[in-house]
Computed example of a mutant assay.
Amino acid sequence: MSETDRVPVDVAVGVLIERDASGREGRFLLTSRPVGKVYAGYWEFPGGKLEQGETVEEALRRELHEELGITIGAVHDWKIELMDYPHARVRLHFCKVFEWSGEFQMREQQAMAWQQLPVQVVPVLPGTIPVLEWFAAERAFAGATHAG
């Protein structure tokens, strides 16, 4: 089976972002992949696979509660990226989340880190890199529009 023949696995990914007092996007949350999983120790945005019949939003709500112990507010569909890893082909559904409740609990013994660009944690999962590039482009555009 060639790379293009592999059926992608749909994954809901939560990009949790803090907003400053003026409403501008600030720090974002990265979590480490737990021991025992592929790419253990790599940093990524939290989330997980869609279960049969689930929407992206339903999966994201379930996954973030299971992994982090939080309940999220509105889910804002953002971008979709197809990634080919040696172990799987995944379709990553990135969603921005600005509101959540509950205390963060690392239920899979993963680590968490609030980050800004450039990120200070390494290594970063390959599927996370496009998001960091999108952030850089958005923030450069926002800075240019506010500068004039």
Rank of each mutant, 00 (worst) to 15 (best):
A137K: 14
F104K: 05
V131C: 12
Q109R: 01
A111Q: 15
I129S: 04
L92K: 05
F94T: 07
G148H: 14
Q105Y: 02
Q116P: 09
Q110R: 14
T145Q: 13
P118S: 10
F135G: 00
R107E: 04
W134P: 04
H146L: 15
R139V: 07
W134L: 06
A88W: 03
S101P: 02
H87G: 09
Q120K: 05
A140R: 15
I129R: 03
V131W: 08
A140G: 13
Q105T: 10
E108M: 11
E138S: 10
F98D: 12
G127C: 02
F104I: 00
F94K: 07
V119P: 09
W134N: 03
W134M: 11
F104C: 00
P130D: 04
T145G: 08
R91G: 05
I129E: 08
P123N: 14
W134V: 07
E103A: 08
A113R: 10
E99V: 02
Q120V: 06
A111L: 13
T145E: 15
V90P: 00
S101Y: 07
H146P: 00
Q105G: 08
M106T: 08
I129A: 01
F104L: 02
W134C: 01
W100Y: 04
Q109A: 03
F141H: 11
R89K: 13
G143M: 15
E103W: 00
S101N: 13
Q120L: 12
A147C: 05
M106L: 08
F94P: 06
P126V: 10
F135V: 00
R89G: 02
W114N: 02
E103G: 01
E133Q: 11
L125Y: 00
V119R: 06
V97Q: 06
P118W: 07
A136S: 11
